[in-house]
């Protein structure tokens, strides 16, 4: 069970552009006044693990002390040509792709070093993807508690119930990292499910 003085190493996992950094920033800004990292609409903005240590959160009389570990998005493909569509030069696109591949490897290696994982998914997209299944299967195999975050519920096309249907074996918290909606429920879930 969650120990009052234990520091929870909280990993933010998920595919690119699911809103991991936006959510990590929301938590960090609320409790420390400082963001974790930069966000962008261009995929793979986070290409190294970004950390914010000793974030102290109060929730329903409990105190959570967390190290936020914002991971690069996990993908099975990274095509530099996709970055060209966002206006990057060929050199910049190739460099970004190279850094992104290293980021994915780093995120996988860090799986051994998290106590609890938030698997962040975009509620407007089909959640039943191989990347999501692989991340969750991997965390289950390592016996790491998983909390699924159905993010972007503020968007018109959001269907967070699809996420719940796809992964009924794990708690699903519906939030908007951008708008700060329902973040308290997320803290409660972290307090309840972390070891």
């Amino acid at each position: 069970m969650f120990g009052r003085r234990k520091i929870i190493r909280l990993g933010f996992y998920g595919p690119p552009n699911a809103g991991k950094t936006t959510l990590a920033n929301r938590i960090a800004m609320d409790w420390t006044g400082e963001p974790v990292g930069k966000v962008s609409e261009i995929p793979h903005e986070t290409r190294e693990v970004q950390k914010k240590e000793r974030v102290v959160v109060q929730t329903k009389g409990k105190k959570l002390i967390m190290n936020l570990l914002d991971m690069p998005g996990i993908a099975t493909k990274i095509d530099y040509e996709d970055f060209l569509k966002h206006g990057l030069s060929i050199d910049d696109a190739q460099q970004r792709a190279k850094e992104a591949t290293r980021g994915v490897i780093e995120a996988i290696k860090w799986l051994e070093n998290v106590d609890t994982a938030l698997v962040v998914m975009d509620s407007t997209k089909d959640p039943y993807t191989q990347v999501n299944i692989t991340i969750i299967g991997n965390l289950e195999a390592r016996n790491i508690p998983v909390i699924i975050v159905a993010n972007k519920v503020d968007l018109k096309d959001a269907k967070p119930e699809r996420i719940q249907d796809a992964f009924p074996q794990h708690p699903v918290v519906k939030v908007s990292g951008l708008k700060g909606k329902n973040i308290d429920s997320l803290y409660e879930a972290i307090a309840e499910h972390s070891r």
Binding site: V104, L111, T134, G137, N138, E140
Partner: peptide, 11 residues
């Protein structure tokens, strides 16, 4: 493939 094999394949 197992989940661990899949992540190995991704790496």
């Amino acid at each position: 493939l197992s989940s661990l094999e899949e992540t190995h394949l991704i790496e």
